[in-house]
Design a protein around this nucleic acid. Structure first.
Lengths: 146, 146
DNA sequence: TTGCTCCTCACGTCACGTGAGGTGGC
DNA sequence: TTGCTCCTCACGTCACGTGAGGTGGC
């Protein structure tokens, strides 16, 4: 978590156990394992004893998932998005494949924006509720009328 | 849905079937029934044939639920909030009870504000994601470097 | 009488939570 | 050797979705 950025001696790359990872990204251990179960993200490798070991890249993938989650993406949608991104980034994917992936990403961008708009509405409604509750809760009882 | 506001001849009060209600508040029939199952909100009465009939007041209760839902309130929490509100509003509740209810509402107001803050963060993260995706999706492939 | 709306089971699903029982690693 | 962390089942839960089979009301 300190000791400056290593990059020259990259070989053992800094591997993290699931506990640290879960805490850093704000998920439960169970959820991280579940995301592996459903094919969203796997640890780089396992230790001899079977412990999951994650790279920083693995972690950033989880952080992307954490961006999608509150927007209401399903696990299936997250997987599609991540797959498209992988295809676009992979140096060994064909031009046509890359093209298709780029289109998919744009579709997801639209989708995400739509969800954001909905979320802004929900937020506004939530703020109204909070105000209303605090008014109702602190109102003096002056209801002295037939 | 039109015919001006009736209020003088209030007696049959305007009752609505579940389909209309669900559509107006933006829930599925199943969800409206589920909320009844778990004690969140019941129709004013049933028709002879057993059809659920809702008043405007019932509907506004559902709308309150719709404000809480995206804030991540559990059904249990929604019920507690609605109960506190009912206790505060009911003319037949004791002063002490009313006092307690007002305090609960203030707690819920805090809770709601906390959720709103979290939601604003999620929204900001979501917007960042959307931007990023649209950048990645429309980026010209100019990666011509070793 | 024909449709469209509603009814009640009741099993299915999604995204995890929660132990139980057992082992790894500094 | 002692703890703390991790492992794999596997059943439980929350908030509904989705038929199946049947009736109500303009």
């Amino acid at each position: 978590m300190s000791t400056a950025a290593s990059q020259g001696t990259a070989s053992k790359v800094d591997l993290h156990q699931i506990g640290e990872v879960a805490q850093r990204v704000g998920l439960s251990l169970r959820t991280v394992r579940y995301y592996e179960e459903v094919g969203l993200i796997s640890p780089e490798r396992r230790s001899e004893g079977g412990f999951r070991l994650y790279t920083e890249e693995n972690i950033s993938r989880l952080l992307t998932i954490m961006q999608m989650k509150p927007l209401g993406f399903s696990v299936e949608e997250m997987r599609e998005l991540l797959d498209a991104r992988d295809a676009l980034r992979s140096p060994r994917s064909q031009a046509s494949e890359r093209q298709r992936a780029a289109e998919r990403l744009l579709e997801f961008a639209q989708f995400a924006e739509k969800r954001c708009r909905k979320m802004r509405k929900h937020l506004a409604a939530g703020e109204k509720l909070a105000e209303q509750l605090s008014r109702e809760g602190s109102e003096q009882r002056v209801e002295e009328r037939s």
